[in-house]
Simulated scan of single mutants.
Amino acid sequence: MRPGHETAVWQAASLLLDYPDARWAGRLPLLRRVVGALPSSSGESLGRFLAHLDVTPLTDLAADYVATFDHRRRCCPYLTYYAYGDTRKRGMALLRFKHAYRAAGVVLDDGELPDHLAVVLEFAATVDPRAGRRLLVEHRAGLEVLRLALTEDGSAWAAVLDAVSATLPALDGEGRDAVLRLAAAGPPGEEVGLAPYGAFLPDPRLREAQP
Rank of each mutant, 00 (worst) to 15 (best):
Ala163Phe: 00
Ala159Gln: 08
Val35Met: 11
Cys75Glu: 07
Glu208Tyr: 14
Gly43Gln: 03
Leu38Ser: 09
Glu122Asn: 11
Ala93Glu: 02
Arg73Thr: 05
Arg88Phe: 08
Ala37Thr: 11
Asp86Ser: 03
Arg96Glu: 15
Leu168Cys: 11
Leu182Ser: 00
Gln210Ala: 01
Arg23Leu: 01
Ala104Val: 03
Tyr78Asp: 05
Gly36Tyr: 07
Arg181Thr: 07
Ala103Lys: 15
Ala170Val: 06
Tyr65Trp: 07
Tyr82Val: 06
His139Leu: 07
Pro29Leu: 15
Asp54Lys: 04
Ala8Phe: 03
Val106Lys: 10
Leu16Met: 03
Val9Lys: 09
Val107Ser: 04
Gly193Met: 12
Arg102Trp: 15
Tyr78Cys: 05
Val55Gln: 11
Ala184Ser: 04
Tyr65Ala: 11
Tyr197Ser: 13
Asp86Arg: 07
Thr80His: 10
Gly175Asn: 00
Val120Cys: 07
Tyr101Phe: 13
Gly142Cys: 05
Ala118Asp: 01
Glu138Pro: 01
Phe69Ser: 04
Arg27Gln: 09
Pro204Gly: 04
Ser42Met: 12
Ala158Leu: 01
His139Pro: 04
Ala170Asp: 11
Val35Trp: 03
Ala93Asp: 09
Ala170Thr: 05
Gly142Asp: 10
Ala13Thr: 05
Leu171Thr: 02
Gly47Gln: 15
Phe97His: 12
Ala67Phe: 14
Leu182Gly: 01
Ser40Lys: 08
Leu31Lys: 01
Arg134Asp: 09
Asp153Leu: 01
Leu121Asn: 15
Ala184Phe: 00
Glu6Asn: 02
Asp21Arg: 04
Phe123Lys: 07
Asp21Pro: 02
Leu136Asp: 10
Leu94Arg: 09
Ala158Asp: 00
Val137Ala: 08
Gly105Leu: 13
Gly36Phe: 10
Ala37Tyr: 06
Val120Glu: 10
His52Glu: 05
Asp109Asn: 00
Asp86Val: 14
Ala103Thr: 14
Pro77Ala: 13
Thr167Ala: 12
Ala166Trp: 07
Asp64Met: 04
Tyr84Ala: 14
Leu146Val: 09
Glu112Leu: 15
Asp70Ser: 10
Asp203Cys: 00
Leu17Glu: 01
Leu146Arg: 15
Ala163Cys: 02
Asp110Glu: 15
Ala166Thr: 13
Leu28Gln: 05
Asp115Val: 14
Val34His: 12
Tyr101Pro: 12
Leu201Lys: 05
Phe123Asp: 10
Gly105Val: 12
Pro57Asp: 14
Ala93Asn: 04
Gly132Phe: 11
